[in-house]
Amino acid sequence: MIAVLVETDADGVLVVSQEALTFGRGLAERAGGVPLHAVAVGRPGEEPPAVVLAQLGEQGVASVHHVVDDRLTAYSAAAWAAALVDVAHSAGAAVVLAAGTPRGNEVLAHTATRLDVAMAANVVGIDAVGADPGDPLIVTRQVVGGAVLEQMQLGDTVAVLSVAGHAVEPAAAATATTPEVVEFSPTMTDADLVARVVRTGEKVPDASGALTSARVVVGAGRGAGSADGFKDVVRLSELLGGAVGVSRVVTSLGWRPHHEQVGQTGSRISPDLYIACGISGAIQHWAGCSSAKTILAVNTDPDAPMVTRAHYAVIGDLHEIVPAINDELDARRT
């Protein structure tokens, strides 16, 4: 079977985990229709929420391994990995996968180490599934911030892999299932609980969560010129009900906070529209914005990578163009 670690929040299964389930189902089908299982860490004394079960059913999940233990109230990567290893052993997983989130990659790194097998991070495709059990799985994954693809062989007894964000669109299975719920408490030692969260602070409302879920992101880079050069960009994002995203140079220079950074070492966004103003589009930034459905570039250089890769472009200085767009939006609203 194929086991997928799913992350949930108050709304149900995270979209990235739904993507991982869709990816896992594709792999299960290619492997000849092996069962798809989900592993979810729950709260002691509570059933999995109905919305989660419905979403897992839509994805064609046969069984949910519902991890319930008082010791797992606070997150610990080692403890979550202990649960995944238990499932891998008890249910005979050929593949263990998760979304390539910080949690997903961290837990899988523990899992692969405990299972003494290789791990492939940020996988975007499956190249070969062996005809027989134990045959190597060959995957393609993103390296160098997505600027390069690596074909990698996972030749071990259990393949461990994380799925890159937006590698697939979440899609419902042809036939929905009613997943069987298997509640269990993993085998853990005290050492597995040493590195756990001792405090969680208040979520900052304008932190990167708003950026990754925004329908429109208005980005600005070095072309903003200074810390004072973002006024019009912020105004445009407000007019469109979107979020502001910036390139790494902007945060390195201290012009804007790090939680607004889009890129390989910042947030990876997939808005319907990304308006990239004064951003050249180097690898570091492109890694974070390439999943935008439509890109409009505003740049003085018509040959900048951001312009040539965009769907639409306006050539010129963002300090002239963005205020004019804001004025036009205001004029059409009145």
């Binding site: 570039a297 018509p302 639409y312 306006v314 010129g316 163009i321 205020p323």
Partner: peptide
């Protein structure tokens, strides 16, 4: 486990320039 590296296929630019300046 590396088999080989490849570069993602470069998509030909299909940018539509909406204009210059303001």
């Amino acid at each position: 486990g590396r088999v080989r590296l490849t570069l993602p296929p470069e998509q030909p630019s299909q940018v539509q320039v909406l204009g210059q300046g303001a």
